[in-house]
Simulated assay, not measured.
Amino acid sequence: MSTIARLPEPVESMGAASWKRRRGGRHRRGRARGQAAVELALSLPLLLMMFLVVVETGRAFYIAISVSNAARAGVQYGSQNLSTAADNAGMRAAAANDAPNIVGMTTTATHFCQCANGNASTCLSTDCAGSHRLLYTQVNTSAPYTPLVNFMGILPPITVPGKAIMRVVQ
């Protein structure tokens, strides 16, 4: 029995695609890793900016909601009866107690009258001939909002207002 030994094919006779696939596998994987690192380096600043915008928007809405709710709490205290309607300090305290985490919030409380038919009133008993007088309380609040990061002047510091008006129960 004769056995014919096969010799390996010379490199020149291998298919060109097969040879490149064998030889370039490691090289391509290394290039893909480098490409991923470059893509991450280019997209990371954009992702961080988007994250900061979301955080700053959330902070701004938190302050706006808190300031508005504080005004509502103050006016609810003042609208209970005639004696609390005259208690401006109590309305301011109720508003401040509702938003203890808001630094620098200012509060003003007032009361005013209006005739039931829509005419203006000075809160005197002689006003509103032919209709009755309605007493209202009003609380205005405001708080400063300063962004944590300066976005090249895009988002400047602002004052966030809050206002609530409610009729006094008589």
Rank of each mutant, 00 (worst) to 15 (best):
C123F: 04
S83Y: 11
A70N: 08
L124D: 15
A85P: 08
C128T: 07
L82P: 09
T84F: 01
Y77V: 12
P144L: 07
Q35N: 09
T108M: 07
R92L: 04
G104I: 09
A95V: 15
R59N: 03
A64N: 07
G30R: 00
T107Y: 02
T84L: 04
N150V: 08
S121R: 15
L46T: 05
K163E: 15
E56G: 10
D127W: 01
T84G: 11
A95K: 13
N97G: 14
I158N: 12
A89R: 12
P147Y: 00
I154C: 11
R23F: 00
T141E: 00
F51Q: 06
I102C: 08
I158Q: 14
M166K: 01
T57K: 14
M105D: 07
L124P: 13
P45M: 02
N119T: 07
K163Y: 10
C115P: 14
T108N: 13
T141Q: 04
T137V: 04
P157C: 06
A129H: 09
G24F: 01
A143M: 04
W19L: 11
N88V: 13
S43C: 12
A95W: 01
I158A: 04
T141H: 10
P157G: 13
S43K: 14
H27Y: 15
G90W: 08
N97D: 15
L135Q: 03
G90C: 10
A96C: 13
R33D: 07
Y145S: 02
G118A: 05
H111V: 15
L46F: 15
L44V: 06
N150T: 05
A37S: 07
F151A: 09
A93M: 08
N150P: 05
N117S: 05
S121G: 04
S142E: 13
A93C: 06
F151S: 10
P161D: 02
I65Y: 14
A164M: 06
R29H: 01
G162S: 06
A94F: 04
L148Q: 08
E39D: 07
A109E: 13
A71M: 05
I158S: 09
V53N: 07
G130P: 03
V38N: 10
I63F: 01
G24T: 03
G118C: 05
A96K: 08
A73Y: 04
T141W: 03
D98Q: 11
H132Q: 12
L135I: 14
G58H: 02
G104A: 03
T141A: 03
D87I: 06
Q138T: 08
Q76S: 12
C128R: 15
Y136V: 08
A71R: 06
Y77W: 09
V53S: 09
A164G: 11
L48Q: 10
T107I: 15
G24L: 11
G78K: 01
T57C: 05
Q76M: 10
L42G: 02
P157F: 01
T84S: 07
N101V: 08
F61L: 14
A93F: 03
L135A: 12
S125K: 11
M49A: 10
N119K: 15
V103P: 09
T159Y: 06
T84H: 07
A120Q: 13
S125E: 05
E39R: 00
C123Q: 06
L46G: 09
N117M: 06
H132R: 14
R92G: 03
M49T: 15
G130Q: 05
R72P: 01
